[in-house]
Design a protein around this nucleic acid. Structure first.
Lengths: 139, 139
DNA sequence: CTAAAGCTTGCCATCATGGTAAGGTCAAGC
DNA sequence: GCTTGACCTTACCATGATGGCAAGCTTTAG
């Protein structure tokens, strides 16, 4: 336990930037395995810490747990074609682009409505008016 | 029941564009009340249909159920200051802006990595390399 | 009258994340 | 050696928006 190369889940959490809660969650999803002490405590070696850090970075890029798992499998596979990694990235990039444009749509419409609302003490409001319009075509 | 002004939940769903499931959900959250037949079937009058359509449009603009509820309260309040409506919109716009910029951050970084990955049959991959870098500062 | 379509409630699932509770373990100090 | 506090374990609940399914009741069309 005083092995300087093995860390408890709390230490691993600090080092990797992934909460202990999420480490257990990723383990359940099959992303990171771990060894246990006789008492059942999880222990992480440097390689597993690296896996956690990998997860952390992929998560920061918005990858889903599922895609992170696929990325890790490719990473572990020395004969991977980088084409497959790039393809995962492309799929994720496509999803990001969709989300961004949906948000920009909302932003644009709502900004227009907000600009048209005088925002004073009177009850007249262009925003509410728009939400009441029976035009189905979503603005 | 054949009253042309009253609609069952299925009909209300079609007319408002909100699924029956979600109509019940919004009812549970206190957004839309309804009358019931003796047998317990929900019935919607034109005013309630309008509320559902309102919800639908607000949802399309990305408002959370909670904010939609606030919007509806303001709508129902004839002495509302439009300032309050505009404020809700502004808060939502701010959240949208945050989400957009987070996504753009991810997009930018990931696009760079993707561009740097040759994406061929060799295992070398700039994306995996980046996920393995021990730099904490998130790219 | 019967069958189909539609309604009811309740429970489960997603996805990422956090909280809490009840209980076991380990390390440090007396 | 025993107590205490910090840390670990599992299991369950919650979020928010949405869908699915199942068992059972109602209405409607034929």
């Amino acid at each position: 336990m005083s092995n300087t190369n093995l860390f408890t889940i709390g230490q691993a959490a600090v080092q990797s930037g992934v909460s202990a809660k999420m480490i257990r969650h990723y383990e359940e999803l099959g992303l990171v395995k771990t060894t246990r002490t006789a008492a059942g405590y999880r222990l992480y070696n440097p390689q597993q810490l690296q896996q956690l850090a990998f997860i952390r970075k992929a998560r920061d890029l918005g990858f889903s747990s599922h895609r992170i798992k696929e990325l890790m499998l490719l990473w572990q596979n020395p004969t991977r074609p980088s084409r497959e990694v790039k393809q995962l990235a492309s799929q994720h990039l496509a999803e990001i682009a969709v989300k961004i444009s949906q948000l920009q749509q909302m932003q644009q419409i709502l900004q227009q409505l907000s600009d048209a609302c005088c925002g004073d003490e009177t009850p007249d409001c262009a925003i509410l008016d728009a939400l009441l319009q029976p035009n189905n075509t979503a603005f």
